[in-house]
Simulated assay, not measured.
Amino acid sequence: MAAPTLPKGNSASLPAFKPSGFKYTQAPNPEWTFGEPPTTTEIGRQWAEQEKLGWKTFLPAETDPQKMLAFFISAIVPRPIAFISSIAANGDENLAPFSWFSQVSTTPAVISVSFAAWPRRKDTGVNIRETKGFTINMISESWANNANCCATDAPPDVNEWILSGLTKEPSTHVKPARVKEAALSMECEFLQHIEIKHPDGTIAADHILATVKCIHIRKAVMSEKGNVDPEKLLGVGRLGDISYAKIGDGFRTARPRWNEIAAEVKEKLGVESKLNLPRSSYI
């Protein structure tokens, strides 16, 4: 089957967006058992068949920076989007999306955001280092276009709040407002700045750690356990090129507990001492 052709620029020729909702399914291969290779299933065999095309190997340090950017944003997917509200030292407000964003720890609650510093440093990163407070607002399907317009390369004095049509809601612990339309917003305080340097000594990126001081979440998107329900949040993630992703199906598969599976593993694969299994499991 030929690979689909990516749309260039305007996507008017594509089918209309359909909010298909969210549902949970079984794992891709619920009958899988310990030690079995992926090729025991049809989709596993199809995946293995692709190996016949071989691999391409290249060195990032010897590759054009623009090509590396395009490659990485297409490869590390989907990426959560930090839709950040910040204020400059002179009082100018800024609203912009960034997809190099992740959680670092829960206690204390710390997140990380990275901002490219080439060809120039991002206004949002500069604002955070200078004024210390900012908000991260999680994007949902219904207002994804409003957020996307804030990715424009506007001059620092342009107020993206006005462009976006989104609503300011006063924060309680930091000066920048949070986005009222966001079902989940985090008020964050600058913690640490790490400069990522190119081998030639220039600054390639600004990596910022921040403490989450306060969280605002709509009750309508909460699960019975008090967590975020993906079916209700309808979050949006970033892909490569000009592409975004919505959260469609999710599959559920329990994390194995060794005291529950040890006997089965020993029966199928031999004694434990020969398995060379790690003592810890992935999170």
Rank of each mutant, 00 (worst) to 15 (best):
K8C: 02
S13L: 04
A16F: 08
F17R: 14
K18S: 10
K18G: 10
P19F: 01
F22H: 15
F22N: 06
N29V: 01
G35A: 09
E36W: 08
E36A: 05
P37T: 10
P38G: 13
T39A: 04
I43M: 14
I43D: 09
G44W: 09
R45M: 07
Q50A: 01
E51L: 00
W55I: 06
T57N: 11
D64I: 03
D64C: 12
P65G: 05
K67A: 06
A70Q: 09
I73H: 10
A75W: 13
A75R: 03
P78K: 15
P78T: 02
P80S: 03
A82L: 10
I84P: 11
S86W: 09
I87S: 05
D92C: 10
E93L: 12
L95D: 01
F101G: 03
F101M: 02
V104K: 04
T107M: 01
A109H: 13
A109C: 03
A109Q: 07
A109W: 13
V110R: 06
V110S: 04
F115T: 02
A116D: 12
D123K: 11
D123H: 14
I128C: 03
I136H: 11
M138C: 00
S142E: 15
W143K: 00
A147M: 14
C149F: 01
A151L: 04
T152F: 04
D153N: 15
A154W: 07
V158E: 09
I162F: 01
L163V: 07
L166K: 06
T167K: 08
E169A: 13
E169K: 13
T172C: 05
T172E: 15
P176N: 10
R178E: 02
R178Q: 05
V179R: 11
A182V: 11
E187W: 09
E187S: 01
L191A: 03
Q192H: 05
H193R: 05
K197E: 12
D200S: 13
T202W: 10
I203P: 05
I203N: 06
D206C: 04
D206R: 08
H207E: 07
A210I: 14
A210R: 14
H216P: 08
N227F: 13
D229F: 06
P230G: 03
G235H: 12
G237Q: 00
G237H: 11
L239Q: 13
G240I: 07
G240L: 11
D241L: 10
I242V: 06
S243F: 14
A245P: 09
K246W: 05
K246I: 14
I247Q: 04
G248W: 08
G250P: 08
F251A: 01
R252G: 02
T253Q: 09
R257C: 02
W258F: 14
W258V: 02
W258Y: 15
W258C: 02
A262W: 07
A263M: 04
A263C: 03
A263N: 12
A263Y: 10
K266A: 09
K268F: 04
R279C: 03
S281M: 02
